[in-house]
């Protein structure tokens, strides 16, 4: 996959898109480590509601975050059809709970428009830009802003 991306490098970007709370979002394909089915997570005490808990990812402890809930949308109801997208953010890995993976998009950077002021702070904070493909609108998620600061301690 890497080679494809590199050879097609001429500025084109590849994005993985998915559905969450009846909207379509996407993240840069290079940040996606793997996509896996939902498995029951061990809940973390004293954590925000959008943190669904932690699961075992081949020996590593992977925190699972409900993307919809993080964006202050109605929480995702995890089912057998739900999907966890494991994305890398810096040195850390985090699993995003979403409804379904939909597509791989190959776009030109100029297809991305800045997020307009939609009055919803969370959405504005976590959406990097909007992409219009045919009649679909896909929001690109800024994954690095999703995770809480590792230094911050809930008192």
């Amino acid at each position: 996959m890497n080679q494809q991306v590199n050879s097609a490098a001429n500025d084109r970007r590849e994005l993985t898109s998915f559905w969450s709370g009846e909207q379509e979002y996407c993240v840069d394909i290079m940040s996606v480590r793997e996509i896996r089915g939902w498995s029951v997570a061990t809940p973390l005490p004293q954590s925000p509601n959008y943190m669904k808990g932690v699961i075992n990812l081949r020996g590593a402890v992977l925190p699972i975050m409900d993307l919809a809930e993080r964006l202050e949308l109605p929480p995702t109801q995890p089912s057998e059809r739900s999907v966890i997208i494991v994305v890398q953010v810096g040195e850390r890995l985090v699993g995003l709970l979403v409804d379904a993976v939909s597509d791989i998009l190959s776009i030109n950077p100029d297809q991305i428009q800045p997020t307009p002021d939609v009055g919803c702070d969370q959405a504005k904070a976590f959406v990097r830009g909007l992409i219009t493909i045919e009649d679909r609108m896909v929001s690109e998620i800024a994954v690095e802003r999703l995770l809480p600061d590792p230094e911050s301690l809930a008192a």
């Binding site: 061990t42 005490p45 932690v54 590593a60 402890v61 850390r92 809480p148 008192a155």
Partner: peptide, 17 residues
Amino acid sequence: IKSLESNYKQVPGIAAA
């Protein structure tokens, strides 16, 4: 012992996973 901090952050009352 698996660190919670490596992918998440410290959780009060929890040492590790």
